[in-house]
Amino acid sequence: MQRAKPSEELLVLALDTSTAVLAAALTRGGEVLASVQSPAERNHSAHVVPAVQKLLADAGISPGQLDGIAAGIGPGSYTGVRIAASVAKTLAWAWKLPIVGVSTLEALAVGAWREHAGQGSEAAAASHGGAADAAASAVAGSMELAGAGVQADPDRDRPGAAQPDTDRNQRRTVLAGADAVVASWAVPLIDARRGQAYTALFAASGREGWQRLETDAIRLASDWARRLYERLEITNAAERPERIVFTGDLEKQEGSISLLESLLAGLPGGAPAVARQPHVMEGRSAAWLGSRRLAGGEADDAHAFVPNYTQLAEAEAKLLEKPGEA
C-alpha cells in the first residue's frame, strides 16, 4: 500500500456546489495555486467542468499530478449537492484518483472562523504573512502534534527536559502560535426555510485544534439556539469559548442568533461574545478538510460516493404525503 503524503505536500482539487456559490480550488498544503468562486446558483451544472479546466490550466497542472479530489457533499441545495458529487466521482474514476467527501457546513465554518480569527491582529499579519494564516497554522500545528502522539503540553518545555532540539523547537513554535488563538465556536447556518437551518457546531482553539462538536443536521432554528445555550450552561465557565462565530445565511437566521444573545445575557459565570461573520463558500476550505482526510490515508469509494441530502427534497416529501402513496 502506498504511504500517504503529509498534508503540506498534497496537491488537491476541491469543489463545492451546495450553496449559491460555485467554489473550487487547487491547493498544495496551505498554498492556493488557483481558485474559482462564482455566484451562479442555478447554473452550477453548466459551469463546474469549465471551472475545473480553468483551475488546472491556470496552475499548469495536469490530472496525473493530482493526489486526490475533495468534494463538498452538503447539506445544502438538493440539486447543488448532487452536481459536485457527480462531477468529482466521475473525475476520480476517469483519472484514477482517490476521492474524499467533506461537509459543506464544516468548510463554511472553517472558512468563516479563519477570516474572523485573522481580524485585528497586525502582529500575526506581519510575522506570518497574514493573521488568518497564522491562526489556521497554529490550529493545524496543534492537530499535527496530537496526531503524532505528542501532547501540546508546556511542561515538556521545562528547563532540563530531555528531548531533541528539533522536537523542542517545533513544539515551542506551535505552542506560541496556539496561545494567540482565541478559543471559539463556529456555527454555520444554511437556511432551510420554515424556520429551519442546516447547521452544525465546531470548536477551534490553539491547544485542541479544530473539532466537531455537533453533527450536520436540519434543525429548528429556535431550538438550536436553546441547545447551544444549554451546552454552554453545563460547561465549566473556564472551559467555555471566548466567542461564538455565526456564518452563512445570517440575515435569514438573525432571529435565532438574537435569541441566543438574549439567553446569554443571563448565563452565570460569564458568556462568550457573539460574532456574525459574513462569508461565502471557498474552495480552499474544502481542500484543507480534504487534505486532512487524504493525509490520513482515507478515501471514499468513487462508485458509491453520494452527497448528504439530510432531508428529502420537497417534491419527494409532498409525494409521500399523498394518501395511498408508498
Rank of each mutant, 00 (worst) to 15 (best):
R3V: 15
R3Q: 15
A4N: 07
E9L: 04
A14R: 08
T17D: 08
T19D: 07
L26R: 04
T27V: 12
G30P: 10
G30M: 11
E31A: 13
S38Q: 08
S38F: 01
V52N: 13
K54G: 00
L56G: 08
A59R: 13
D67V: 09
I69C: 09
A71R: 03
G80Q: 09
L91M: 13
A92K: 06
A92H: 06
V100R: 10
G101N: 02
L108C: 11
L108I: 11
L108K: 10
G111Y: 01
G111E: 02
W113Q: 09
W113D: 07
G120Q: 07
G120P: 04
S121V: 00
A123T: 14
D133V: 11
S137I: 03
L145I: 05
R171Q: 11
R172V: 15
T173Q: 15
T173A: 15
V174K: 09
L175A: 07
G177P: 09
V181R: 11
A183T: 15
A186S: 15
I190C: 13
D191Y: 10
A192R: 06
G195A: 12
Q196G: 10
Q211A: 08
R212K: 14
R212L: 12
T215K: 06
T215C: 00
I218P: 08
W224H: 07
A225T: 08
E230I: 05
L232Q: 02
T247V: 05
G248T: 02
E251S: 09
K252G: 09
K252S: 07
S258V: 15
L259Y: 02
P268L: 13
G269L: 04
E282W: 05
G283Q: 12
A302C: 10
A304K: 10
P307W: 10
Y309G: 06
Q311R: 15
A313D: 14
E321M: 08
E321S: 13
P323F: 04
